[in-house]
Design a protein around this nucleic acid. Structure first.
Lengths: 195, 195
DNA sequence: GGCGGGTGAGAACGGTCGTTCTCACTTCCT
DNA sequence: AGGAAGTGAGAACGACCGTTCTCACCCGCC
């Protein structure tokens, strides 16, 4: 399968470059030389840069969410602990060398106004992430709003960690998540619906 | 003072274009024609595009934080209510036409890896915002961690509202903030330090 | 053995962008 | 009145980027 091999090498190079430097700062020629593929082949697999960007985002979305789910599933069995494990995973991610925030938020800021495909990819990624947390929250017996709250905390932690180049927002968010989980567990559900 | 007038017109045009379309998507010529100024004058006030971008971010930072502080100061007197009013202000901001998320997060994603000035501006903006919330939290008698938690909620709400083009994250975040404020008010402070 | 179709390497093209230059014109000082 | 200095409008320049084209080369098939 050298067909898929070249495609993978292209996407690997594109992902590394696009994520590290931003999409618009990376030319197709940089992707070509980083992937060791000829320019003709590059355009054979991805007829335009937009196609490459979209494929980059799509693949990263799947990989990112799979890595999170795998970690969480292996870290805890109680749903509440799984919710907290999400923030452990974030902490590890933030500490990785080259961490530069959420690729989808970055791409959205760069191209969201111009490219509907990028905007849709970002929206889809965030929707899936929110749905995952909502699912964990439901399994934990927490009210649906709690899933939303934890999603916002995680989102904020990602942005804060990126801009400050510091992984501590993950533990801050986890602390807040713990408080929210305890608070909503102790509170009557009606209080969350009304106001 | 037509000196400052031209400068203001340039910055107004730059802010509108940069925020709406992203920095790299907007050429100096677009700023020129939108501001009605000649290209020579443009480069007279801002010797390079980097200078213009930096001035855009600096001015927006001041204006944004001043608008927030003004609203909050006028909306409530009790510090706890002021903390909650922050999210009311966010809701209004999110609902404005043309809202496209945080200019600093967007610029950071686009240029943070390339331009130290942009990265520093984003960091400064977020630090000041966090300091403001920390100040309100302290005035409300909440533990310092609560300021951090609310900052993360606000940050997450901004990103979520931008990507989903929907202002409801502001009320979601406000609901979570209310829970956190109530929870930490009822809890012994030692529990927040320990774990 | 020759030949057509695909491949590699890179030059070439059209467009854009940041920045500077030209040049005619005005204005203001002496 | 005359010239120096600055201005407006836009052309020009050099670099880059996305995309396509050229051309020599190689492979499998009649």
């Amino acid at each position: 399968m050298e067909h898929d091999d070249a495609r993978t090498r292209i996407l690997d190079a594109a992902e590394e470059l696009f994520y590290a430097q931003g999409v618009q700062s990376v030319g197709m020629d940089a992707v070509r030389s980083a992937s060791g593929v000829t320019l003709r082949r590059l355009y054979q697999y991805f007829p335009s840069k937009d196609d490459l960007v979209e494929a980059y985002l799509l693949r990263r979305d799947g990989r990112w969410r799979a890595a999170l789910a795998t970690y969480v599933a292996g870290a805890a069995v109680a749903p509440k602990d799984q919710l907290l494990a999400v923030f452990d995973w974030l902490a590890r991610w933030f500490a990785e060398p080259g961490f530069r925030g959420c690729a989808f938020v970055n791409s959205f800021g760069e191209l969201g106004a111009t490219s509907p495909a990028v905007a849709a990819a970002a929206r889809h990624h965030k929707e899936e992430f929110a749905a995952y947390l909502a699912c964990l929250a439901e399994a934990a017996g927490a009210p649906p709003a709690t899933g939303v709250h934890l999603t916002l905390l995680a989102e904020g932690a990602i942005t804060a960690a990126a801009i400050h180049a510091d992984p501590t927002p993950a533990t801050d968010a986890q602390q807040a998540a713990r408080l929210l989980l305890d608070a909503t567990a102790a509170l009557p559900a009606a209080l969350l619906r009304g106001e």
